[in-house]
Design a protein around this nucleic acid. Structure first.
Lengths: 259, 259
DNA sequence: CGCATGTTTGAGGTGCATCAAGGAAGGTGG
DNA sequence: CCACCTTCCTTGATGCACCTCAAACATGCG
């Protein structure tokens, strides 16, 4: 069983989709067979919105693959992408504030498990491994929310962009032969800007600047290449935190070795 | 039992310290006697930092009275107050991101229950009421984090200040005879600025503007008076969300009646 | 009183948003 | 195959919201 897990994990890495931290990954594995039996798997595509409420009740979602975003639009303002959700992350309907046009949107292709919240709570009550999985997933998400808040409140635009690129690179990147990191970019310019609290035009300018200074490589649409992670990390005050949270020694080895 | 809870709640209101939502309040009441037996109560004072780690292990905190803040300082940046924690809120050490100088600081006088996280998890595993309490507290906090992110990312400075004042007024305010709302202001100018991602000077200017336009009243230090909540709510895109989350029909009646 | 701490307010600078024009990539129909 | 459209990205010019700095003003305390 344990060796099974390890195999799965390294396969996932080779495939370019890093799993969560070791402890989290293990808890998820124990929990996943039980959860799978009670959840409805949903396949999602780029831009697809997943209804937060299901059958009129509180609903729980578990991200299985891909990247999803939780977005919120307060009346009279533009959209804010509140969080990026990766594999293993958990979302309850009530995480979206009321009267705020909350939406769960798939960034690229992905898979989500959906179940009633009450069913989720019962499973957690009956199985400590599941409860632990949920608790740890939420703690991890809370810490990421804290980083995001610090970025929105205190980082200048370049720092924000660097932070975002590092986050995606650590989570979904694979190292290239040239020492860089490649990853799918499931967001368009506007999505990123809404995540970072920036203007799309400003974002574009910063990306150009990073490109000319060689930190990222010009790349085809929907694919990004970080050519100098170390230099990028030097730009982001949150770099060490992100490496600890996302990389955690489990991500692509090159990504961590570089630093 | 139910009437007991009600009595306690209205007493707390008269005392100026609103409890959480009805369901949360009830779950907390059932859970509190059990939790109390396993937690160490800490009395905190203005500006006091509470160590996030206790005996070297993951720790859980439950806010019993007062307001606390979770703050984060990423290397090379200024402090960001990531969240305000009110009565009933729950915090785990791991909610603070690593390498970010996380700190739990009491804003005014308060009380916190502290216990080992493992003990907390065991109690939740053994008692569905406690598990429900934790789950709901965290869901509520997540929703507030979403609002905070939207404010930091998308509100202009006046909207942020209005949002902050409404949040505190709904949580800790008592209505005055003049139709206003009074509440303790346990934060100084810098604290508020760091919560809202603003410059203290800018904040001061906005407060002056709100004062001259009559939305808030000049008041002695460490006490604030919102004289026109409706007008303040009109300034904040998050007003309705906050009323639903914080006021919830349970706060000061005047506060909700006004809207 | 004199000092420490915190707030207000003015003058000036800047980082980012806004607006607008142009370009690249992909899709569609002739 | 090319013209044409749509969508998305880039980049320049300009202005404003907010930051920064500094001086004056309160407030509390030994």
């Amino acid at each position: 069983m344990t060796s099974d897990v390890k195999t799965t994990r390294s396969e996932a890495q080779l495939g370019g989709s890093a799993l969560c931290s070791a402890s989290k990954g293990r808890a998820l594995c124990q929990a996943s067979t039980v959860l799978a039996a009670h959840a409805t798997p949903l396949r999602t595509r780029r831009g697809q919105a997943v209804a937060l409420m299901f059958e009129g009740g509180e609903t729980a979602f578990i991200v299985r693959a891909g990247v999803l975003t939780l977005q919120v639009t307060m009346p009279g303002t533009t959209r804010q992408v509140v969080a990026m959700l990766f594999q293993g992350d958990v979302l309850r309907s009530s995480f979206a504030p009321p009267y705020a046009e909350g939406a769960l949107v798939s960034a690229g292709t992905g898979e989500v498990w959906r179940m009633r919240w009450t069913a989720c709570a019962e499973l957690a009550a009956g199985d400590p491994a599941i409860a632990l999985y949920f608790d740890d997933a939420l703690a991890n998400q809370m810490a990421r929310q804290a980083i995001h808040a610090a970025a929105l409140g205190r980082f200048d635009c370049e720092q924000r962009v660097a932070t975002f690129l590092i986050e995606l690179a650590l989570r979904t990147g694979v190292s290239t032969s040239g020492g860089g990191i490649v990853f799918d970019m499931p967001f368009n310019r506007t999505d990123i800007a809404d995540y970072l609290g920036l203007n799309p035009d400003t974002l574009s300018r910063i990306m150009s600047r990073l490109r000319t200074s060689g930190l990222i490589s010009p790349s085809e649409r929907s694919r990004a290449v970080v050519s100098d992670l170390r230099a990028l990390a030097a730009l982001s005050p949150a770099a060490r935190s992100l490496i600890e949270i996302h990389g955690d020694g489990q991500g692509d080895p090159a990504a961590c070795k570089t630093l």
